[in-house]
Structure formats: C-alpha cells, structure tokens
C-alpha cells in the first residue's frame, strides 16, 4: 500500500482525533442536556419571582437576536412586558429579565443572572436584583446610558436593557 504524504498524515491524525473528541462530547452533551435545561428553567422561575410579575404569559412575537423570550404580565397592577435577554462577550454571558411598562415604555424592574466572577458587580448586585429602578435614556441616541438605584456601570446590563427596549419598540411599532 502506498504511504500517505507526511503533511496529509498529520492532518488525518488530527482530523480523526477531532472526530473522536466530538463524538465523546456529543455523548456527554446528550446525557447532561436535560439536567442543564431543568437548571435553566429553575433559574428563570426564580428570576420571575424576583421581578414580581404575576402570571407571565409567553408572547408569540418575532424575537431579536439574543432575546431569549418575551412575556406579558402584571406588576403592581400595571400591564408590562418582560424580556429575557442575554449579552455575550468572550468571557461571560449576562442574562437579564427586563420588565418594561406596556403603557409608557418605562423600565420597571430588572433581574440579572450573572457569574459571580463578574468584576465590579459583586457587592452592588445583592440578590441579583435592582428593585424598582430609574433607567435614563440619552436624549440624542435614545439609548439607556445610566441606571440610577444601582451602583453598577456594567455595559453588559446596559446592553441587555437596550436590547429589551429595541424588542419593546418592535412590538409596540414605535
């Protein structure tokens, strides 16, 4: 049998190893996927408790990229939308539930689910909850730039709020 050229042999070796690794990971993924999904659902349910939204219902709307879900419900007797959004960078994923008033588009509440290692956000994020907040928009761009009531300047959280607001505008046709 003719011997393979050396570079081709190296590529083939790495390819076969990659396939074996992928197969192994696929197997582990199949085994762990149900538990991971259950954990995520549990976490989301806890976040809904934090934002105090009663009987949230899933909204069947076209979701923007990184918007994981849209809901409508009541908070303190006010009709609201809840958007489950995430902001990803190379190091971490910050997932946030943003409660927006249906009436005037005001940000009513937030629940942020973030890794404990997020810099600058540990102490100010007690219970991962902002409570009732005041998020201020830039007059010129319309983007949310400051979040009063929370001593965080997290770009990830601000990005989540802005994304939720974009989704809100899409639904309201603003």
């Amino acid at each position: 049998m003719k011997k393979l050229p050396y570079p081709l042999y190296l590529a083939l070796f790495l390819g076969v190893l990659g396939i074996i690794a992928a197969g192994l990971l696929a197997g582990i993924n199949i085994l762990t996927a149900p538990a991971i999904k259950a954990n995520e659902e549990k976490k989301l349910a806890e976040q809904f408790k934090v934002i105090e939204v009663e009987s949230p219902k899933i909204l069947e709307v076209e979701l923007l990229e990184n918007v994981l879900g849209a809901y409508e419900g009541l908070t303190n007797g006010k009709a609201c939308f809840v958007f489950n959004v995430q902001n990803k960078n190379q190091f971490l994923t910050v997932q946030t539930l943003v409660v927006i008033s249906q009436e005037d588009g005001k940000i009513l509440n937030l629940s942020v689910n973030l890794p404990a290692t997020t810099h600058g956000m540990d102490s100010s994020f007690e219970g991962n909850k902002f409570g009732v907040i005041d998020a201020n928009q830039d007059d010129f761009t319309g983007k949310f730039v400051t979040i009063s009531g929370a001593t965080t300047s997290s770009n990830s959280v601000k990005a989540c709020i802005n994304l939720a607001y974009e989704q809100y505008k899409g639904i309201k046709g603003v």
């Binding site: 762990t32 890794p115 404990a116 997020t118």
Partner: peptide, 14 residues
C-alpha cells in the same frame, strides 16, 4: 453545569 450549577456559576469562565 448539569449537576453542580451553583458551583458552575461561582467558578464562571475559570
């Protein structure tokens, strides 16, 4: 992530 989610959240990207 599946069986020790709290620890996974604590360790994060590490």
């Amino acid at each position: 992530q599946a069986y020790l989610p709290d620890l996974f959240d604590q360790l994060g990207v590490f």
